[in-house]
Nucleic acid binder design. Structure first.
Lengths: 179, 179
DNA sequence: AGCTACATGTAACGAGTTACATGATTAT
DNA sequence: ATAATCATGTAACTCGTTACATGTAGCT
């Protein structure tokens, strides 16, 4: 259900095409929502069927026509209703932790390598978020509400990555000790 | 793919029935893997089809027969192969953050209430993990490797919940200021 | 009398992934 | 020449959720 609402929220903010939506997701919402192009196209078609969004077709030359989607009044109502109901935490499913738990079945060094690799992935992602924070969250308290909200999601991303890095360090320290 | 491997890992550790597996997941692996009973039964049937596990039927009286599943040699090989390949971080999808980002569409107080509610959920979960840590992670460095690995997953859970609580505090502070 | 625990499963649906298809434009 | 970007979509498949079905035993 939530992908539909994420799209409605994005379109309420600024109408755009499926292609552009997909890029906006990757750039602005990457730290808390991920969706493939295919998923977005399918969901847009469904939302249009249900009358929650409408499309305006922009003919283009040499390229496929562009379909700009707009949220309808019904769409906005549905979105507000969804925001107003309580939501539950997303259940966690993390491959790496399954591997750590079953780690005694393989050579220790393999797990350590994996942990180090993950540490680097999170370091990388962290630096992306920090750069975004520098660009868009200066003087947080003076920014308009919408920017403050965006920065809060970024802060969540930063905390998330930081926490992963710290845990990797902890795990690496403990497991390399017992070798 | 990962549910299959999570099950293989659990069965390698200790053979058991689908019913018991489901309970073990909830108790021991809750902080990083969640699966419904139905999902587990379906996956077990599939794994049996593929010869990665075998079932021994324990007839019972007054109750449905119990099927105890064991990992086969092939099953263990598949598991080790999976552990040995690098894994990617799970993509994040978090309803609450979508709501925060679109928060300007509803009264501020609604978002604040939601944040406070989430904070409590994470506080609750945190205390569960801390209790488990107290019971099973004393003298960590002297424990057998398998226990250390379990405690590492617990530590991840504790960090995760702690981080959420801190973020909720931060978000509540920022958003109640601008009222 | 009604709830929880035990123990298994089927069926339908919703959400996410992967592969395939098309075809022009622009940059290296 | 080749890759990336623009722009849309279909189809098949896997994974996760929800509802339904069955039936005993024990507790309150």
């Amino acid at each position: 259900m939530a992908l539909a609402h994420t799209i409605l929220a994005a379109l309420s903010n600024k109408p755009c095409s499926g292609y552009d939506l997909s890029k906006r997701f990757a750039e602005n919402s990457g730290c808390f929502w991920r969706a493939s192009q295919q998923q977005i196209y399918r969901e847009l078609a469904k939302l249009e069927d249900e009358g929650l969004i409408v499309a305006e077709v922009l003919p283009q030359e040499g390229r496929p026509d562009k379909k700009i989607y707009y949220s309808t009044e019904t769409g906005r109502e549905k979105l507000v209703a969804w925001i107003s109901e309580p939501s539950e935490p997303t259940p966690i499913r993390e491959d790496l932790l399954v591997k750590v738990l079953a780690g005694h079945l393989v050579p220790q060094s393999l797990i350590l390598k994996e942990l180090d690799c993950r540490r680097q992935v999170h370091l990388q992602q962290l630096s992306v978020y920090k750069e975004l924070e520098r660009e868009r969250c200066q003087g947080l308290r003076e920014l308009p509400l919408e920017s403050q909200c965006f920065c809060l999601t970024l802060r969540r991303g930063i905390r998330y990555e930081t926490e992963w890095i710290a845990w990797c360090d902890e795990a690496i320290a403990l497991l390399s000790e017992s070798e």
